[in-house]
Nucleic acid binder design. Sequence first.
DNA 1: CCTATGACTAATC
DNA 2: AGATTAGCCATAG
Length: 110
Amino acid sequence: MTPQEYVEEVLQLVESIPEGRVMSYGAVADALAEASGRNSARQVGTIMARHGGGVPWHRVVTSSGRMPPGHEQEARQRLLSEGVPLKGDHVDMARARWLPGGGTDGRPGL
DNA sequence: CCTATGACTAATC
DNA sequence: AGATTAGCCATAG
């Protein structure tokens, strides 16, 4: 698994995130750990910073629901437009968190 | 090989 | 709830 292939995997997963849902960097890293062998939230963040253009990067936030520095306003706008549950200036991770392969919405209970 | 860095995370204060 | 600290880990020099 070359670094660029890992990047492709990350981008692919990010694109698979449905509207109104988000994933944390750690979740992305964890989900791709199976397909890539590595896992680290920082890695995913760095990859998004470099290659995040072209995918709905705003659907990827920190575990606290914070948005990438320098794009807070941008991300907030997009998330709001897509119906992502926001909690003031950050994403309501309790509701917006999404996991791949969870079916159509992946939301357990609630 | 060692050091520095970063769109992270979790624990404390 | 915001700020700080320490841990983590791959990439780049």
